[in-house]
Design a binder for these strands. Structure first.
Lengths: 199, 199
DNA sequence: GTGTTTACCGAACATTCGGTCAGTTGACAA
DNA sequence: TTGTCAACTGACCGAATGTTCGGTAAACAC
């Protein structure tokens, strides 16, 4: 985990530039962030950034890939592929929360992408693959009778992952509890309801 | 509802400019939208826009106020103020869905604001008032024993309205069902759970 | 010391940005 | 026909944008 000692002047590298840049992107929005803003946050001149990355859009592309690679690994995991669908769905939700917390700044950025450039559209396409995977899983669970029949599966998918994705809007690793506690509460509420049974 | 016949050349007015502008803002993001983009969508020159509104930021301010006024009316409603908290919470959720669908483009814009300008920060402050109102309501319901004691009320608030707010991400009035059907599904799932009871 | 590697600065670039202004066009009323 | 009013155009402004480039400074190896 320790950074290799390296020859030459000490300072930023592509990794530290990306980390700081993503934070600024999330604070001001990608389009609302200028290279000057990034330079200020890095404590460096605008032109120095181009020593580490090809440009603003490459920073975005690298950040989005970090989020999407996490989701791709989830879809590829064998644990998402055997057993009752409702159990797999619960596992996918928990794992999604873990990835979301783990890679919070990158996923936050991903969830705000609207398709303004080729880079953004490519990211949206990869994201759609994940959405389709989850959507199919919910339909399976419904077909197996594990989801209340008065709920439209497509709507359940949307609302369930609406709750999951909202984590990027308010979760802060400092204050908030662990990712597992968060996932517990989320699953309990969405799967079994927030209402007390004896009320 | 019909537009008054008016003297002078026919064309856009502040209202139609706002409606179209908000659509473009939601497609490309506020910061990602140039006045040139708006002009193109309006079928007009850039300078013509300034005949109707003072500038880009005023368009944003007007749009955000439309969303926030709806939420303010909700908070002021007497139906949010009497009876068991859990019932009031359900009413507030249903009403929120109605407002969100009713004023979809305006609320969508509001939920993406990050505080880049004085206008955005003012909107965020008004929105925080609504969040505080809902947060308090959930705590009341928990204190009255109507919410499962193993769920943290603050987290319930976040997740519940995470699901509500996600509506702006995927609901399209054309395809989607009515706002009431949507609210029904949302309340059933979040209050009583998506899991079938006999499973 | 010398050479090499890496990180950086400062000035400049072309383009786009939000916004201004003097004048024109088109629809209505009288 | 003439006057009035709202809607609009086209040329323009200063500032900010993302990016380039030639040169410099600091850390390391030898």
């Amino acid at each position: 985990m320790a950074v290799q000692p390296r020859q030459g002047r000490r300072g930023h590298d592509p990794e530290s530039v990306l980390a700081i840049a993503v934070d600024v992107f999330n604070e001001r929005g990608y389009d609302g962030t200028s290279m000057e803003d990034l330079a200020r946050a890095l404590g460096v001149t605008k032109s120095a950034i181009y020593h580490h990355v090809a440009g603003k859009e490459q920073l975005l592309a690298r950040a989005l890939d970090r989020a999407l690679d996490g989701l791709s690994e989830l879809v590829a995991d064998e644990r998402a592929d055997s057993g009752p669908a409702i159990g797999r769905l619960e596992w996918v939700v928990r794992e999604s929360v873990r990835i979301l917390v783990d890679r919070l700044p990158y996923v936050t950025l991903l969830l705000r992408v609207r398709g303004n450039s080729a880079t953004e559209r490519r990211a949206l396409e990869r994201r759609r693959a994940f959405d389709a995977f989850v959507s199919h899983l919910v339909k399976e669970a419904a077909a197996e009778g594990a989801i209340r029949p008065d709920l439209d599966p497509a709507l359940v998918t949307r609302l369930l992952f609406g709750a999951v994705n909202s984590i990027t809007e308010w979760y802060r690793p400092a204050r908030g509890g662990s990712a597992d506690d968060l996932a517990d509460t989320l699953v309990r509420m969405t799967f079994d309801g927030l209402r007390a049974q004896d009320a």
